[in-house]
Design a protein around this nucleic acid. Sequence first.
RNA 1: GGCCCCAUCGUCUAGAGGCCCAGGACACGGCCCUCUCAAGGCUGAAACACGGGUUCGAAUCCCGUUGGGGCCA
Length: 466
Amino acid sequence: MASTVRVRFAPSPTGHLHVGSVHTALFNWLYARHHGGVFILRIEDTDRSRSTDANIDAVIDALRWLDLDWDEGPPTPGFRQTERFALYREHAERLVRAGRAYYCDCPPELLEQGRKAAEARKETFRYSGRCRDRGLDAGALRLRIPDDGTTVVNDLINGPVTFDHRQLDDWILVRSDGTPTYNFCVVVDDVTMGITHVIRGNDHLSNTPKQILCYEAFDYPVPEFAHVSMILGPDRGRLSKRHGSTSVQAFRDEGFLPDAMVNYLARLGWSHGDQEIFSRGELIELFDVKDVSSSGAVFDRTKLEWLNQETMKRMDDRRLAELCEPFIERAGLPVPGDRAWLARVVATLKERAKTLVELVAVGRFYFVAPSGYDDKAAAKFLTAAGAERLDRLIARLGSADFAPAGLEATYRGLAEALGVKLVDLAQLSRLAVTGTTASPPIFDVLSILGREETLARLRRARAAIP
RNA sequence: GGCCCCAUCGUCUAGAGGCCCAGGACACGGCCCUCUCAAGGCUGAAACACGGGUUCGAAUCCCGUUGGGGCCA
């Protein structure tokens, strides 16, 4: 009987949740859900200056938006590192009593001297061990580690990675001012939370042997490790703001859907044959850490946009309409009260937009009449001939069937009667109704707008012709 | 600088010695469809970083080089 999988996501609250963080959060979440395990959210807020309540709320909001739910974590108390200092102190004392850690009072200048000397010899700086056996009872607390031998990280993604102890040193657990170091907090948190699988960014692989040595000093079982490759910018450097949006909040504001975001991030560094599009359920069912790639992946916004459109196309129109409402409001447009009507609207727009912001922009004419006409198109269509055609259209549309098929029949009939092509009438109407020459199928548009609004806009266009 | 990780089309990837003169997807080009724009269908161009091995046979295994990334400073 295997023990329950317990994984965690431990962001530091900086206000913006980076897509790279979300990537590892997602892999943890998928691993937990796939194995029926427990997903824990822990806030690494030891950097007091940036770890405001607002920033913590931002992390929580972002995870909720993505629907990555956690089983243990805030708002339950005890999941913020700042609430856990007593635990760190207690564990530090335990190591001192067991003789596995010792105090060191080496002055910074001495350490700096050693560092320079090591650099001159082109070697890794290691603490000399000067205070190891001095039996001090104050100062910085260091972990006593073996002088030679190796520590092997049996990484689930990268395979066995061997670290020579001669590259490691008696690292500091607790600084002389009493504050615990990052690596020490992580170990204490992970053991006390019963974490069985540490799934985190590749940038922590180098810290892992130090942490393993610490687990061993405690005589705690060492968890499994899986170091996920990092997300890169187009220049293969660390993904940062200069490459464009990097926080999930930014993508949310730009009109990306949580399911598209999740699908895209899941496919970055993970794959299942040739499949590109996955539902949540499929992701949970198919996710396997063995299929996670060990090489870095460039974040490609264009592909995210494609996936976002695919997600919109597959989504129920009522649901999509609902998601659009805040974007309509933010664009300064009146939000329709009739959601069924809005569902008809978005159905015609979703294959013409990559994001919700774009969808609203492209469908602006549904919510408000055009304030003017495209110059080039106006010169072409709002002519004497156009005036006559508009008159005939207005006359016929007064009593026409306003279902798309009925409108098409009316238009085709009139085109024949006038001896013109359908496209001439269609483009003229499109210009009158939307202000431009590109829109969803004109009969759908007119049908959705309705007789009254359609006629009003056609008459306005007619009046614009001198 | 030391240590660690990585290396298939521009990008995400399939590929776990012969099925691969390398497959899919995004993006890009062409054609078709068509009331416009999209969407869709078909189609084209596009990659195993380099050099040594191992093997009858290597994108796949080993070593090195180069390049990128990370950690420690």
